[in-house]
């Protein structure tokens, strides 16, 4: 498994990592479970970096516990989960539980990926701050993240 903290702060060449207090926020982009389709996660990570966010991308196949630990260690403002296998309800519940056990239950969690419309209220009822099904325009994801980061 990829160590969740192992890629912290790595910015793709050419993008240029922004540092300092004027940052819009610090985001953990994570892929829980076994699904390896990371096009969406990488796309969102790139878009957020372009918008000035500091982004930590965990890589694929992370356990809920590893994601929660990374969220605490990296002191992020938001945790973004990307799930395309269809197992989003079970996996999201586990990540929320793991965050609470790490004492980080207040970090807002957003979920993106192949999410069917009926599952959106289910996820929101569990405590997910926003759901961005695949196909959501990037500016919408970026502005949603900005709102969540500034709420803290």
């Amino acid at each position: 498994m990829v160590g969740a903290g192992g890629m912290s702060g790595a910015a793709p060449s050419g993008v240029g990592e922004v540092t300092g207090r004027s940052l819009p926020g610090r985001v953990l982009v994570a892929k829980p479970g076994l699904d390896g389709h990371d096009r969406g996660a990488r796309l969102v990570a790139l878009a957020l970096r372009d918008a000035g966010f500091e982004v930590v991308y965990t890589g694929i196949r992370q356990t809920p516990q590893a994601i929660a630990r990374a969220a605490v260690q990296e002191d992020v403002d938001v945790v973004g989960l990307s799930i395309l296998s269809g197992a989003h309800v079970g996996l999201t519940r586990k990540v929320l539980d793991a965050l609470r056990s790490e004492g980080a239950g207040s970090i807002p969690v957003i979920v993106g990926g192949l999410i069917l419309p009926p599952d959106v209220p289910t996820l929101e009822a569990m405590g997910v701050a926003r759901v961005f099904p695949s196909g959501t325009p990037l500016p919408e994801v970026v502005s949603g993240m900005e709102e969540l980061c500034h709420r803290i």
Partner: peptide, 22 residues
């Protein structure tokens, strides 16, 4: 399914939620 692709049996703890799904 994903657990099979990754060499995990259906009763592996990592396989939960994924058995027979994809």
């Amino acid at each position: 399914d994903l657990p099979s692709h990754l060499g995990m049996d259906s009763d592996d703890p990592m396989s939960e939620d994924e058995v027979g799904r994809l």
